[in-house]
């Protein structure tokens, strides 16, 4: 089966003082219909820019090029802005990190939901309104009809994010990209929103790219995982494979940072990854992780080769057996 989304060798450069910031450095992605891909990585690793590049929503000064960005077989880099706008919100939708500022303060949520539908469907306002009410109910908002007249500032953060989700679903997209949809919310609301997303995704058969730095979330919802570091995908594979046998030292490091109930001893120190992310301004040579890696060797100054751990599970490192951490990982997989 042909994947719904295929990205090959995606590069995003941002001109800054002192040269180009190589924010995304040649990544490959593919998402099948109905599948969930989680992109994991720390702040500034390029995961948000990757999603914006796919949606063609990058800031104007950022430059994007890729060997291929194909959505359902359509090369979106060759689309005219108008055609791309028709695609956005209809076949591919996006949910953003900040529900507090992602809705326009001057219009009612009803207005903002309805305009999404009317932008892509030849239909009456009445029908769009019914659809909006239907979706608000679906995302768990009570008294949906009366909420349409509310302004964003009258809703809590959790409710606003539910509205954003409803908005992204208005046209039943085939792909939904959620960029850290719960980061700005209270911890108690985070789980609710994620479960809601996962549920809706299953129900509607959408593919989803979920961007997060929460590995607990990944373990629960992901079919596939891509771990990003400094603008590169350092490890990718089926979620079960990546969690069972993390093969890149960065992935193992990340997994050591999470406490696992029943596995991590009370009072035990959690792992940390020492050092800081390298600057991506100017040329980046060799493995970007080597300054923070426990297993770094002189060869790491050369670009790391792609290695295969198992079928569909690959990583970029000079040393295949360098790092295996099965102990903490089992707990997470059990929780899946």
């Amino acid at each position: 089966m042909k994947p719904l989304l295929e990205v090959e060798d995606l590069v995003v450069d941002i001109p800054v003082a002192g040269g180009d910031l190589h924010a995304v450095r040649g990544i490959d992605l593919s998402v099948e219909k109905g599948e969930t891909l989680c992109i994991v990585g720390e702040s500034g690793c390029g995961k948000s820019l990757t999603s914006l590049a796919i949606m063609d929503l990058l800031p104007t000064k950022a430059r994007r090029h890729a060997a291929r960005i194909a959505f359902d077989g359509i090369e979106i880099q060759s689309l005219r802005p108008r055609q791309m706008a028709d695609m956005r919100g209809d076949r591919m939708a996006m949910i953003f990190q900040e529900p507090m500022t992602s809705l326009n303060p001057s219009y009612t949520i009803g207005n903002q939901l309805i305009e999404t539908y009317l932008a892509h469907r030849r239909t009456s306002t009445k029908e769009a309104r019914d659809r909006a009410i239907d979706l608000l109910e679906r995302v768990g908002i009570t008294a949906a009809a009366s909420r349409l007249a509310h302004y964003p500032h009258q809703l809590s953060g959790g409710l606003r994010q539910r509205v954003m989700i409803a908005m992204s679903l208005m046209c039943e997209p085939e792909l939904i990209i959620a960029d850290e949809p719960t980061t700005a919310l209270d911890v108690t609301i985070q789980a609710q929103i994620l479960l809601l997303l996962a549920e809706l995704q299953r129900e509607l058969g959408m593919a989803m790219i979920l961007i997060t730095h929460d590995l607990g979330v990944v373990a629960r919802v992901a079919d596939k995982v891509a771990v990003m570091y400094a603008g590169e995908i350092v490890e990718a594979g089926r979620a079960t494979d990546v969690f069972a046998s993390p093969s890149h030292p960065y992935t193992t490091g990340l997994l050591e940072c999470i406490p696992v109930p029943g596995k991590t001893a009370p009072g035990a120190r959690l792992g940390t990854i020492g050092g800081i992310v390298p600057s991506l301004v100017g040329d980046v040579a060799g493995c970007a992780f080597r300054d923070r890696c426990r297993f770094a060797a002189p060869t790491c100054a050369e670009p790391a080769p792609a290695q295969t751990a198992s079928v569909g599970h690959s990583y970029r490192c000079w040393f295949p057996e360098g790092a295996r951490m099965p102990s903490t990982v089992e707990g997470l997989v059990h929780g899946h």
Partner: peptide
């Protein structure tokens, strides 16, 4: 602003 990005993400015309 974020909501302008949202408006673009919804596929509204410029």
């Amino acid at each position: 602003a974020d909501y302008i990005r949202t408006a673009k993400a919804k596929g509204l015309r410029p």
